[in-house]
Design a binder for these strands. Structure first.
Length: 464
RNA sequence: GGCGUCGUGCCAGAGCGGUCUAAUGGGGCGGUUUGCAAAACCGUUUUUCAUCGGUUCGAAUCCGAUCGACGCCUCCA
């Protein structure tokens, strides 16, 4: 079955066809690095990870670019307030970002271009826009994009600017613009910008926010590429403006498929830094989530639905993840000479359903239901010992396929010596039918973070 | 004011006109199993899909209205 994605451009699911056969160029809007990204941000990044992993599973090569916005009002303000050079400030948050990416097992992008490393390209693009008369320079040395020059402006966000009433904010906002909705390509330097400026044909200043993505996507992926992603809040004005700039500057098509992920909600409200209702990855890991359960919690709701992040999610995600881990371990034990047999996911019927669900605009819920359905049936076969070794190895291959999408299995299951010792003591106590001691040790292990399960094959240790 | 999304069983969440007496996960309860647990499995919580009308042989699914939640129109994943 063919891949279909919901394209914001058409507001419909469309069959996905890459520009170049077998390869996908993917651009995803990255973080503004003046602060730690919260899990609302990571919901989007993890959706993009899912998308990429899916494309890889389908056999595409993927070139993935994620920008890092390392200059904007907030960044400058913070660097001035904390008396830290802007580069030092952003370096700090970029490092934190990469460390969170790693904790969430997100496959890194191929390129993480920083806005401030690509000022020259932005200036070139602005020049081109001025030459083609899509942009104008104001007295103070700022450059604006004139939305009236681009007929399709507002098409992506489905906003009609002819009929639009100006909101109070827009009216009072600016002075020198031709049209209040015109947006900045280049911001002239002000005192409050301090040391932060670049020279340009229009004087000292810095780039507007939107131009960086246009300039960097074109540089790394070409004028015309396949997929551009971001959170819904980037739909307007950011992506709308990107389209206007890129199309007008290059005269070419820009992006074929726009995919937007919905918000993560906390107490029915959008999680955002300005509202102050956010969690960081680190906090959640400290609060008992594992990388795997957090991934699961963020992935198990469809990317175009709002995700209500509640306390119940943790338990639910942990249970679901351990269910998958459990059967993986069971199958590994069941198959004695796994290395000698080549399992194949293709021979597991559930795999077909799994992929078919993902083909339909990344229907994670459908995909997971086929996985869990298969898990239950396979557990029955394991209980009754009616599973063939071939099916067991195929099952392992299927689980690895599932894992290539969700990445929720742990493979390093090494157990500390101290824990093994305690388990041995408990086994001895059980042999002596000393239930009191054996239960005491079990409690002790539990407190150390380990569960112990007695099976016909002996006691098994599992990290909680 | 404009644009848009959504409202499903105890909770989360699929469902894209018949195969829906609603997938899947979580919780509660009961059971099989176990020294007791855990894990696994079985049953149950489930004739119900915000409300009211309409279209249709047939609707959770399409249309309209109403109520409610949320997002965008302004920096924001």
């Amino acid at each position: 079955m063919s891949t279909r994605f919901y394209n914001t451009k058409s507001r419909k699911k469309e069959i996905f066809v890459p520009i170049k056969k077998g390869h996908v160029n993917l651009y995803t809007c990255g973080p503004t690095v003046y602060d730690t990204a919260h899990i609302g941000n990571f919901r989007t990044f993890i959706f993009e990870d899912l998308l990429k992993r899916y494309l890889l599973l389908k056999g595409y090569g993927v070139t993935h670019v994620m920008n890092l916005t390392d200059v904007d009002d907030k960044t400058i303000k913070k660097s001035v307030a904390e008396k830290i050079p802007i580069r030092d400030l952003t370096n700090k948050y970029i490092d934190l970002f990469h460390s969170d990416i790693k904790k969430l097992k997100i496959i890194p992008a191929d390129h993480y271009p920083r806005a401030t490393d690509h000022i020259a390209g932005m200036i070139e693009m602005i020049k081109s826009l001025i030459e083609r008369e899509f942009a104008y320079i104001t007295d103070d040395g700022s450059v604006y994009f004139s939305i009236s020059t681009y007929a399709d402006y507002g098409r992506l966000a489905n906003l009609n600017f002819e009929l639009q009433q100006s909101t109070e904010r827009v009216e009072t906002d600016d002075y020198s613009k031709d049209n209040p909705q015109d947006f900045t390509l280049w911001k002239a330097w002000k005192d409050s910008d301090g040391e932060v400026f670049w020279d340009s044909p229009w004087g000292r200043g810095r780039p507007g926010w939107h131009i960086e993505c246009s300039a960097m996507s074109v540089e790394y992926l070409g004028n015309h590429f396949d997929i551009h992603c971001g959170g819904v809040d980037n739909l307007f004005p950011h992506h709308e403006n990107e389209i206007a700039q890129s199309v007008c500057a290059t005269g070419k098509e820009f992006v074929n498929y726009w995919l937007h992920s919905e918000h993560l909600l906390l107490d029915s409200e959008k999680m955002s830094k300005s509202l102050g209702n956010f969690y960081h990855v680190k906090e959640l890991l400290a609060a008992g989530y594992t990388s795997e359960s957090l991934r699961y919690a963020l992935l198990s709701t469809h990317y175009r639905s709002k995700l209500k992040f509640t306390n119940d999610k943790k338990h639910e995600a942990q249970k679901a993840v351990s269910r998958v881990q459990e059967i993986y371990n069971r199958l590994q034990e069941y198959v004695t000479d796994y290395a000698d047999i080549n399992g194949s996911a293709n021979r597991v019927p559930a795999s077909e359903d799994f992929i078919k669900a993902l083909d339909d605009d990344l229907d994670v819920a459908g995909a997971l239901s086929s996985v869990f359905d298969w898990i239950r049936k396979t557990n029955v076969q394991l209980d009754t010992k009616t599973l063939s070794e071939m099916d067991a190895t195929n099952g392992i291959a299927f689980l690895l396929q599932v894992n290539s999408i969700f990445d929720i299995l742990k493979f390093d299951l090494s157990i500390p010596e101290e824990i093994i010792q305690l388990a041995k003591e408990r086994t001895q106590a059980r042999k002596n039918r000393d239930w009191q001691n054996s239960d005491r040790i079990r409690d002790e292990l539990y407190n150390l973070g380990w569960n112990i399960e007695d099976t016909p094959a002996g006691a098994k240790l599992k990290q909680r």
